[in-house]
Amino acid sequence: MTANTLVNSKLVCVALNDKSQLAALEGTFSEAPYKKPPTQPVLYYKPRNTWNVDGAEVEWAKDFDGNDVPAMAVGASLGVVIGRETCRVSPADALDHVRGYTIVCDFSLPEESYFRPDIKGKCLDSSAPVGPDIVPAETIDNPDALTVSVFVNGEEKSVFPLANMQRSVAELISTISWIMTLQPGEVIAVGFAGNRVPVARGDKVEATIEGVGTLTNTLGGA
């Protein structure tokens, strides 16, 4: 964890919130081990050892034998920064609890299964840059109208309009706040494009949201 992380106490990420990804996996999710599609938001944590900042290097992960892993991937999300204690709020009131917005990148091993918590894939040191800053909530009229783009070495690799999310920002804040009381400075990464972007050692990754900024990081291991 870097000392100047923008995250306080927890970073909650929402997986499988891209409608087209859910549609594409409908057959898979009807079979074992899933048996039926998710009825609730699919959530995971990026714990404190993952938190990183704009401009910093993201470590290339090692496997259990100490060798470089063959592949990593990145997804980018709008990051919602909680402004005050958020406990059991309605979707209608949810956005009143937002202090501002930022960008979250989730570097990980390629997503292969959603059945068990993906500690090996998701909890890698320095794998969750958050930034570049927090823009005040009042500067964003409608967070669900934003678009998240990912560039690798200057080439556009992914464009995700948040209008394609299965669940809206307000709905997610509400649902999560009925599971756990959220505290100021906690961050929710609300949704990633279903197709994560493959990255290689030394790649420069930029995640951009108009009005929020550009989060730039470089993969290590080159």
């Binding site: 609730q40 918590p117 009381t181």
Partner: peptide
């Protein structure tokens, strides 16, 4: 009751106040 087969055991089961 809240178990689902996604990142099981999911946060709704195991992350409550």
């Amino acid at each position: 009751d809240y178990l689902e087969n996604y990142y099981r055991p999911n946060l709704r089961v195991k992350s409550r106040d």
